[in-house]
Design a protein around this nucleic acid. Sequence first.
DNA 1: GTCTATAGCCCGATAGAC
DNA 2: GTCTATCGGGCTATAGAC
Lengths: 200, 200
Amino acid sequence: MARKSGSHAEITGPKVLKAAERLFARHGFAAVTMRQIAAEVGVQAGALYLYTRDKQSLLADLMLAHLRELLAALPAPDPDPRAALEGFVRFHILHHLSRRDAVFVAYMELRSLNPENFAAVEELRRAYEDHLETIVQRGMAAGVFRPRDSRLATLALIAMLTGVTTWYREGGRLLPEAVAEQYIALACDTLGAGAGQSRS
Amino acid sequence: MARKSGSHAEITGPKVLKAAERLFARHGFAAVTMRQIAAEVGVQAGALYLYTRDKQSLLADLMLAHLRELLAALPAPDPDPRAALEGFVRFHILHHLSRRDAVFVAYMELRSLNPENFAAVEELRRAYEDHLETIVQRGMAAGVFRPRDSRLATLALIAMLTGVTTWYREGGRLLPEAVAEQYIALACDTLGAGAGQSRS
DNA sequence: GTCTATAGCCCGATAGAC
DNA sequence: GTCTATCGGGCTATAGAC
């Protein structure tokens, strides 16, 4: 297993993606330079091209990997609509709070993707939305949820839940699990499944 | 009133802001060049500097003008909490659908602002959130709304409502007024003010 | 008020040494 | 696998002609 001095491919590859994710999330894709990414990793700019074809691929790979992870980690819906909604909301909040950079990039940099990559990302996003809409529709069929329009309610819910990333600060007054519980109550009420909240 | 040939300050000034707004919304602040803005206006790049100190001021002026307009146009809350919420939601949805570019820039380009401009923008945004939170709290005091936490519910509501800009397409199946009505129902239910929706 | 021209700098990506 | 050096080009902002 002798290895040339300066050879760290197995380490550098993931570090490049992590550095790009961090910088894209903070400053935006267009504002970040390959030299900045290289500096964050601790290599020279030219070395990045051993791990990515170009800057655009770096962005697309990040977003696709994140969305595939999200879909793969999605819990199977409980047969009970209310429990299914609870499971989805808890998953969404906890996942989004633990992967803030990836989430931020995936939501903000759609316009930085070229058309092919955009189509691929949109397909995955659509699948995620459809997953929630199925839960909503089952609840409507069961008479538990009563939104006027399942699609609009689904998109409204996802926007509401995802908004948590814009205000939540680590070390704030609420732990992620407590935030999830509050959003579960809000989501149940939003769908008209009532009694989700208390007044205490 | 004789005027030099090529003198169009009263027209060019606003055109610069409109062009910048359009391009920043579509491609992002960092990805747009002064040459692109100039081309959209129909002048050369150097001429832009008659109307703005630099690119950063262009962005800050756009965002501050939009938020000031938003606050100035905000309707005074109805004494009845439910009616106040309805008024706010209708205003928010209709305003956001009619000023999509400005809204998009104001939400997406916070990170492109320098610290002073960021602070000024955040102050206005905070005032807007506080306006809604006051409505929520009055409803709680009146026993009409029952969220567990007024701040969290306020931020969740704003995220839900603002999300309309990500999916609404002009010429789609719903007119803005119909969209507003649906969000009103969702918002009422979200706060536990119930019976906002029907099943038909 | 607008133009042309340009200063001074930084960009993404590649070539070739080690 | 990483570095240094560089190509070709685009950037913001300014100077000076008209």
